[in-house]
């Protein structure tokens, strides 16, 4: 699992598992920029089923350009959405 730094570009996984997933559909498969490394937290996808016996995951805040999310977005190029995403959903952007 990569350790990302602020400013790194990352790509969100495109997959659709059933469960308590905290990665919104609208950012899956998209590329954004790491805004900060938040810290480590237990994986909500496991905690939701009462499974707490695992190593915590690194959580990042990733900034996406609105125009990358919504092609017809009406606003500035500088308009963004910041989303908290766990490391298991992120890979280095090509």
């Amino acid at each position: 699992m990569s350790d990302f730094q602020p400013g790194d570009t990352v790509k969100v996984g495109t997959r659709f598992p059933i469960g308590h997933v905290r990665t919104p559909y609208y950012c899956r498969g998209l590329t954004g920029e790491v805004e900060r490394r938040v810290g480590t937290f237990k994986n909500p996808e496991e905690l939701a089923y009462g499974r707490a016996d695992h190593e915590p995951l690194t959580l990042y805040r990733v900034r996406f350009r609105q125009k990358d999310i919504w092609p017809d977005y009406k606003g500035l190029d500088a308009d963004t959405v910041d989303i908290e995403l766990f490391e298991n959903w992120l890979e280095p952007a090509a």
Partner: peptide
């Protein structure tokens, strides 16, 4: 977001960026 903010009576300046924070996790 700009449309929703306008519905709350908040008109964002044309040169001011809007940053949405989606509180998805911890």
């Amino acid at each position: 977001p700009r449309t929703v903010l306008a519905e709350f009576g908040t008109d964002i300046a044309e040169d001011q960026a809007v940053r949405v924070h989606d509180s998805t996790a911890d």
